[in-house]
Simulated scan of single mutants.
Amino acid sequence: MANYGDNGYIDFSKLWVLMRTKDLNKQWLKNNGIHSNTVAKLTKNENVTCEVICNLCRLLNCQPGQIMEYKNK
């Protein structure tokens, strides 16, 4: 089995761009049920659960591809 990160990673840069276009910030995420630890993970492109991604898509009325992108290292 490959070590963590050997297969690339998920980049959440699109999330922050989308939020800027909607005039939203990290505090808005926290105020709407996304835990501060999770916001920190998103900022650092660390692992989050599918449930978090579903919550983000619901809150932002978007599809996963609008907030994240696979990067091959």
Rank of each mutant, 00 (worst) to 15 (best):
Y9G: 01
Q63N: 11
L29D: 03
L18W: 02
N31Y: 04
N31G: 06
V52A: 10
N61S: 13
Y9F: 15
C62Y: 09
D23I: 01
T43L: 04
A40K: 10
N37M: 04
M1L: 07
V39Q: 01
N7Y: 06
L59N: 10
N32E: 03
E46N: 15
Q63A: 12
A40C: 10
K22Y: 06
C54W: 06
I34F: 01
N61M: 10
F12G: 05
E51K: 12
V17C: 02
N47E: 10
A40F: 07
N37Q: 10
K22E: 05
S13D: 14
N72E: 15
L56T: 09
N55C: 07
E51P: 00
N37E: 12
K41I: 00
K73C: 03
G8R: 09
N55K: 15
T38K: 07
M19P: 04
W16L: 04
N32I: 04
K30M: 12
N37S: 14
C62E: 09
N45T: 07
T43F: 08
Y9Q: 09
G8C: 04
R58W: 05
N31A: 14
E69D: 13
S13P: 00
D23G: 10
M68I: 07
V52T: 15
L42D: 05
I34Y: 03
I34R: 05
H35M: 01
K30Q: 13
N47W: 11
E51I: 11
T43V: 06
K26A: 15
S36H: 13
S13F: 03
F12L: 06
K30E: 11
R20I: 00
C50H: 04
C50F: 11
I10S: 00
D6S: 09
T38W: 04
K41H: 13
N3M: 08
N37W: 03
W16D: 02
I34A: 03
V17G: 02
L15S: 05
C62K: 09
Y70S: 08
D11Q: 07
M1P: 10
G5K: 06
L60I: 08
L24K: 15
L15H: 03
N45K: 04
D11T: 03
A40Y: 11
Q63D: 13
C50Q: 11
H35N: 14
P64M: 09
G8T: 06
M19H: 03
S36K: 13
K26T: 12
C57I: 13
W16T: 06
K44P: 00
V17H: 08
H35P: 01
M1K: 07
I34T: 01
K41W: 00
C54Q: 13
E51T: 08
L24P: 04
D11G: 04
